[in-house]
């Protein structure tokens, strides 16, 4: 029998995620000989990540490319995988996030399953960077006293607070005006988003701090999957895995382009020295310690072992 599945995500159609989502839809139709049709709703047409997550859980949306860390209001374990300074380079990210299954994947998958979501594959959002309009940020001390919008995540808010930042909460559509008029000095997001949301128009300095790596999930509604045959479920899982891997490569090309755009717009781009990274890592270590009660002793210990390789 034929089935139509709705796939939602918050990324622009032309982004690597948007392309990957369309690819997912094409492959699903092709490989099921037209039995499975996937209708893609990009760019937050069906709401933000949190809303999409709830709908997946209820089965009113069947598929999504989702940032599970945005669902931390639903479950505190949803932002375990974006803890600061787990990975600093793409080599580390590839090993930890896309290598052998480990505590990060287990935590994410189990948390998703508890909320009736099923992971079909992982994709890359971005390393996070720091932008601001005041001064180049080359060390922890440079952050002192800045007013910054930080993504609502337990660990990242804590990290910036510990660095002496005045953490400000702002909804996404208000960030641009707030940056432009100086209500906040800076924000932290990946360079692709800084480029695409035009934040660079209101900022002077970008630090490629890589303070957190955001891996995201190609997710299905468990309810919707249960209605499919085991073969079709396997088919979607295989496509999720394949498309996720494709997106990671594609996204890295886009990071380079975004960085060029930001540079061309006249922003000063700073990379952290090894000493500065060590400073930030020490702060991150405090954050990890403080959040251990939330995530659990064992889990954090396992993550430490994983990082030490």
């Amino acid at each position: 029998q034929e089935v139509t599945l709705r796939l939602a995500h918050v990324f622009p159609k032309q982004s690597s995620v948007g392309e990957a989502a369309n690819r997912f839809a094409e492959l699903a139709s092709e490989r099921s000989n037209g039995r499975i049709e996937v209708a893609v709703f990009p760019a937050g047409q069906l709401g933000g990540d949190e809303a999409i997550g709830r709908e997946l859980s209820r089965g009113t949306i069947q598929l999504a490319f989702i940032n599970p860390n945005s669902m931390v209001g639903i479950d505190p374990l949803f932002d375990f995988h974006i803890l600061p300074f787990v990975a600093q380079s793409y080599e580390e990210a590839d090993r930890i996030y896309y290598g052998e299954p480990n505590v990060i994947h287990r935590t994410l998958n189990e948390t998703m399953e508890r909320h009736r979501l099923k992971n079909l594959g992982y994709f890359e959002n971005d390393f996070r960077a720091i932008s601001n309009s005041r001064r180049p940020v080359a060390s922890v001390a440079d952050l002192q006293g800045l007013k910054m919008r930080v993504v609502p995540s337990q660990s990242l808010k804590l990290l910036f607070e510990k660095a002496g930042v005045q953490v400000v909460t702002l909804p996404f559509p208000e960030i641009f005006t707030a940056l432009q008029q100086g209500a906040v000095d800076g924000q932290e997001n990946g360079v692709i988003l800084i480029d695409q949301a035009r934040f660079f128009e209101a900022q002077k300095y970008v630090t490629l701090s890589n303070h957190s790596y955001v891996m995201s999930s190609i997710a299905a509604s468990q309810r919707a999957l249960d209605d499919l045959s085991p073969e079709d479920q396997a088919l979607l899982t295989a496509i999720g895995d394949e498309v996720g891997k494709w997106q990671v490569q594609r996204n890295r090309e886009n990071v380079a382009t975004a960085l060029e755009n930001i540079r061309a717009a006249g922003l000063e781009i700073t990379e952290l020295s090894p000493e500065a990274v060590a400073e930030f890592r020490a702060l991150a270590e405090e954050v990890w310690a403080e959040l251990t009660p939330v995530y659990g002793e064992e889990r954090v210990a396992e993550l430490r072992t994983l990082i030490d390789g």
Binding site: R54, V72, G73, I74, D75, H115, P152, T169
Partner: peptide
């Protein structure tokens, strides 16, 4: 059941 909350103040 799920304890869903808003993000800033919980």
């Amino acid at each position: 059941l799920t304890g869903d909350k808003l993000l800033d103040l919980g």
